[in-house]
Design a protein around this nucleic acid. Structure first.
Lengths: 345, 345
DNA sequence: AATCGGTCTGAAAAGGATTGCAACACACAG
DNA sequence: CTGTGTGTTGCAATCCTTTTCAGACCGATT
């Protein structure tokens, strides 16, 4: 149905090989012939069959992207960055969403691996062992997770948390609550680590409120714990959770930031639009997606040879908006909430 | 590198054809042989090379999905529906985002068409002619757009708007403003049509505030116009815009719904979580994505033969939450805003 | 005139899976 | 004992492109 290289060849009065060369190695054919070939190809609307090409080159021209939840705005931004970079390099993109289910990751990884040249695995929830096993044969770049011996793109979450804690500390907050994300999230682990370290450095009390689903409802549920904890500021695992916090605090008529400061993470676009606008630790999402693809493509080009699993770490950046303010003069009473300085999960 | 059908064949002591048949037409081979083949395939971890298969069958096992903006939660839901259906039918999914740019649609359509068996084109912004031209050769199902002679999945937007207007009318609102979406959006046209019809039926005044980008900022910008229009209720093109309206109304200290009722469209998850929770016309997003794939697959199975471009229309459903209430007793003055009953774009 | 270098082109193989056709074995009927 | 049918398997062609290898051609040098 669609024109093949053969059709172009006869139309241009040359052989298939010449057509192939005219299109992919232009300097090897006589300019006049090439012009004829290009004209014929254009006239027939010829598009090379990527499956056939892939069969012989062993490369598909496709990349895969696996994310936990496409409806999370954090990941939409990542997807956009990945997409831009892939399209720029003339790769097509398979995107798959695991619905936050760890088991789906290895399954998708396996299913995808035959159809792509490489995979960006974003914020995987699976245990290290599973990931180590499955990715060996194909090129996989991890994002938001670091595993020994695997290339990855990460963000300096710990430093982001340091900036957050120092900001709050400078505002006079002495007791800071943290609403944690999934136990299986590597980023969450990094953030907890950064929090504990900088809490210690600044002499702040850190209250770990427990692990919550990284969604709006998680923040809603955590808000009451935060209020009961005696903290004057609360840091959320991400912005969506922070928005949930704000919502519940609003419902309980707690004024932000006068009575309680709230700080998110990610800097999703919605965060700048709330009232009051959310103070947050900005993560270069788009850039991270792009960097993952760049790294992946460089690995593919090298032929998976030398370098021992490169890592790329991007900076996080505190963005101060309106949900953080000076600590209330009178400390709140501090019932409930278990204060701890050791990591909990 | 990866095991081929040949490897399985020698391992099982049969020919390639037998392996192929054992895997895809099990009833044609001797049960004992089949068992041997399956065992060998399993042991070697054989996965058929889809490119090679596609070369001969002419089918890729891939579907394509094109949406205007992945970071719009409406489309994330659609994507999830499409993905679920595709995965259920053992198809892989290419997803592409046009960044709301119409020209990218035809380009992506063309690029994708060779690599997939069919495409779901969601909420296309391109003019009818362009779409009519490009899709002829491949199977394309439109979503949120109806074009003569092309299969489509749509939602009864007009009826959704009717429900909205009747709801507001029953609450005593006489003057209703509409914040329109992109001119190039077919859904927007349908909604305007429904609005004008039901405004006439209920004897309400409809104020068209103009076209705004379908984003939060669009709502923010429209809010002041709504206030100045003398309307006591405002319907937004979608929920994201409605959230922008709420934000700006809040900033201007207009109480919702006491002074102004606000009504959105789509029912994105965020809408149930605001304070007050947003009244909205719910669109079956997930279901629509699924329906589009089901329709597409049925077309592929039929071999694009008989039926003259089936259309599937899904119902919309008003969800009353807290941003709509009885009209304020004292009508507001009505300067600015151009009242009209004819469609504007 | 023969050789050489260089440029350009074509023939043919390869890549992995599917499938039409032929072959084979076997049982059974004629 | 031959012919027919059925059930099972193998051979070989095919899909479309890339790539290797060899050949053709031309001008120039020895």
């Amino acid at each position: 149905m669609a024109p093949t290289i053969r059709d172009v060849a006869t139309a241009a009065g040359v052989s298939q090989s010449t057509v192939s060369r005219a299109l992919s190695m232009p300097e090897l054919v006589n300019p006049a012939t090439r012009a004829r070939v290009l004209e014929a190809a254009g006239r027939l609307g010829y598009q090379p069959n990527r499956a056939a090409r892939g069969l012989i080159t062993g490369r598909t021209g496709n990349l895969g992207l696996i994310v936990p939840d496409l409806s999370n705005p954090f990941f939409s931004s990542v997807v956009k960055g990945v997409q831009a970079a892939a399209r720029g390099a003339d790769y097509s993109l398979f995107i798959a969403d695991t619905d936050e289910e760890a088991s789906a990751e290895v399954e998708l990884l396996r299913a995808l691996t035959r159809q792509v040249d490489g995979i960006v695995l974003c914020s995987p929830r699976s245990p290290d062992d599973d990931l180590a096993r499955v990715g060996v044969d194909s090129s996989v770049v991890l994002m938001n997770r670091r595993i020994e011996g695997r290339p990855s793109v990460t963000v300096d979450n710990a430093d982001g948390m340091r900036q957050a804690v120092e900001h709050l500390s400078a505002l006079g907050h002495k007791r800071i609550a943290y609403v944690a994300g999934p136990r299986t999230s590597w980023s969450n682990g990094q953030r907890e680590r950064g929090l504990h370290q900088s809490a210690e450095d600044t002499g702040s009390d850190l209250v770990h409120l427990g692990h919550f689903p990284p969604r709006f409802e998680g923040g809603v549920a955590a808000a009451d714990l935060a209020l009961a904890s005696g903290a004057t500021a609360v840091i959320a695992y991400n912005d969506v959770v922070a928005l949930g916090l704000l919502s519940r605090l609003g419902a309980r008529q707690v004024s932000v930031p006068a009575e309680m400061s709230v700080l998110g993470c990610d800097d999703i676009s919605m965060s700048a639009m709330t009232h009051p606008a959310l103070t947050t630790v900005s993560i270069p999402k788009w850039e991270a997606g792009r960097a993952a693809v760049v790294l992946l493509l460089s690995l593919l080009a090298e032929g998976a040879a030398d370098s021992p699993a490169p890592d790329r770490e991007l900076p996080a950046q505190l963005i101060v908006r309106a949900t953080t303010g000076v600590a209330p003069a009178t400390g709140r009473p501090a019932p409930g909430g278990h204060s701890t300085k050791g990591p909990t999960g």
